[in-house]
Structure formats: C-alpha cells, structure tokens
Design a protein around this nucleic acid. Sequence first.
DNA 1: CGTCTATTTGAATGTACTCAAAAGCGGTGG
DNA 2: CCACCGCTTTTGAGTACATTCAAATAGACG
Lengths: 193, 193
Amino acid sequence: MHGLILDNFAMHISLNDEEKERVLSKLQYKEIGKNTTLLKAGKVCANIYFVNKGCLRIFHKDAENAEHNILFCPENWWLADIVSFSEQTPAFYTIAALENTEVFYFSYADLEQLYVEVPKLERFFRILIQNGFNLYQHRITSNLSKPAEERYELFRRQYPGLEQRISQKHIASYLGITPVFLSLIRKKKYQKH
Amino acid sequence: MHGLILDNFAMHISLNDEEKERVLSKLQYKEIGKNTTLLKAGKVCANIYFVNKGCLRIFHKDAENAEHNILFCPENWWLADIVSFSEQTPAFYTIAALENTEVFYFSYADLEQLYVEVPKLERFFRILIQNGFNLYQHRITSNLSKPAEERYELFRRQYPGLEQRISQKHIASYLGITPVFLSLIRKKKYQKH
DNA sequence: CGTCTATTTGAATGTACTCAAAAGCGGTGG
DNA sequence: CCACCGCTTTTGAGTACATTCAAATAGACG
C-alpha cells in the first residue's frame, strides 16, 4: 500500500519504525478522476500531495483563458502550489488530473505537527524544494538556449514513457509552443528514420 | 557595516544578540571587480554569497560558447550555485560581476556549523530557496505565456533601476532574445510616447 | 454509430534571428 | 585633452522559426 511513498522518503532520509508509524498515521489517501481539478487557482492549497499512480499537471490559466502547463507529476512526484501551501494564501496555479490518479497527502496542520515529531522531515522537504528549484533553473536555462525541437527531446528524456500517456496539446503547452507546431516537429523527426 | 545583511535576516527570522554575534563571526567579506568571475562552472561552489553593493549575474555557457543569464543579483540578493554548494559538487553555472561588487559570504563548513548553533538559520535558508523556487516558477510561466515585449516590462518592474546599470546585451540574454531584437522593442516602445 | 475533441495538413502572417554596416560610447595612452 | 581602439547599440535587409486560421482526418468515448 505505502511502498512507493516509503521508498520515496528513504531516498533522502532514513526513518525508524516509530517514525514511519507517525508519518503514516497522518497520511491521507484520495482518488482523482481524469480531468478533475484537485486545486483551483484562488483557493488555498490545503495539502501537499504525493502521486502514487496516474499523473497530475500544474498549470496557469492566463488572461486570455489559455492554459500553460508548468509541470507534469506522474508516479513518485510530490506537488503543491508551494507558496500557497506554505503561507496558506490563495493559489496562483491550478492542479488537475491527466489520468485517473491516486494520491497520498498531508494537510498543512498535520505536516506542521510532523515537523515537530519527526524533525528529519524538515530536511526531506527542504531537499525536495531544492531539487525543484534546480529543475526549474535548468528548465529556464534550456528555454533560453534551446530551440523547440531540442526542448521536446529533453522532455522525452526527462519523463520517459509519459509522451505515450498524455495528449500532444499538453506537451506543447509545457514546451511553450502550439500543438500545430509540435505536430510539425514530430512529422519532421519521424520522416528522417 | 552589516546593516543590510542583518535587515535581510530580520525579514524572515529574529535573532537575539548572541545569535547575531555567532552569525557575524562566521561572515566573510570580499570585493569583486567588474567583469571578474566569482565562481566558474566546473569548480565547486565553496560559498554562499550576499550582495551588499553592486551586482552579480549567474549564467550558463552553452556548447556554442554563448552565455545565458539566468539571474541578476543586485544589492540584498543571496546567491550560489545551489546544487553545487549544498552537495559540494562541480557547478553548472558561472557567477560574475556586472559592476564592482561587495559581498558577504559563508563557507559551506561554517554554514553547516551555524545550522547547529543557530537552528533558525535552517528556516531562513529554506524560505530563501522556497522564494527562489517561486520566482523561477513564475518566470517559466511568463516565458511560456508572454511575448518578449511583455517579459521586458516584467524585468523592468522586477528589477527597478537595474536597466540603467547593466548593458542591454545582458538584459537580452536574460530575456532569451538577441540584443538586436531588444533594441527594436525599445525603439518601438519609445516612439509611442 | 455519432459526437466531440485532438491531430494533421496547408497557406498566409508575424515574431524573432542572422548578417552586415554604421553610429555611439567608454576607457586608455600619447 | 583629444584621438584611437574596442565593444555595444542601432539600423536595414533578408531569412528562419513559430503562429494563426481554416479545413480535413483521425481518435476517444458514450
């Protein structure tokens, strides 16, 4: 049941049985149907989620009502509108499901209490944010320096197998190009082989 | 002498006199001449810096030797190659001075010791990274959704006064456009008024 | 099977780039 | 103090990358 998430904690910190117990006691579970919204921009992000199965996306809806995917979160990803969650203020981003998805999550209050009971978690989540910071920094770097075609390749390498699971329009939005143009890139690519 | 940096700490945590004493005892000072490199990609980022005066930039040099500025750091900014610093591994980014610059800094070992002596600092730097994460997230969002002209406006609002201090080629690099194109944008802008 | 949405294709357009030349500006040395 | 050098910015012409709009095709789902 909790295999994936315990392995995930183990990547950065080691918890003894008692600590595992405490952590799991606060853990909640939820299923989100495909295309359902988990967090809507403007609401406070009440929980921090771990994806056990399926795939979520974080996106921004701009003034023209266009959606821009800033992150895909398949199995093993943690996600929240970080600022909204940690400051309990209205969210800027929306979170929705691309597939039927299972998540585990902590509420804000429970996580605060866990930080006291299991201080190692502070370290865990600090590393998590640091990794996210790093991911975004590299993403900005490649957005600045690389054409769409290479960014598409990068996406394929960073999310192995995900391309088969989600629609091209979402990938295009993530890359910052139109679905039409992504279609052209792919056509060009496959004609070469 | 230490006014700016103490105020900066005070934005997120409150330190008593003894804690201030401990923190300041580890603080080092350095001046970096204009166009001098402070950290070179490939070297380990030994310190985390606070800009007291002047302006630094973090950039990436790509395969074609082109430079891409990912962040400007004028007065009051903290900076490091975060991953390189916190894991003591070779840096991906380079840090250099755009003006004659004064920095305060902590070495890795000193900061680790300070975390033990003044645990509040863990919180301070966690918030700092979180703010950085947030900044980058919004930057990606606007890169995806906004044309160069609007990104330029955003830059001007986010770094008030900085435009007058650094060259257009660096701003262009930050925005992900060529200096030539930035020149056109500005021309168009000022013709309207 | 029919409806709705996603993808492909094509044509016309716009955004941003390269290359090249000229003008501006800043620092250095005579 | 000014003349010169190197670097940055501007300007213009031609080009490439990416978009919009529209229509046709393909896929997904009840």
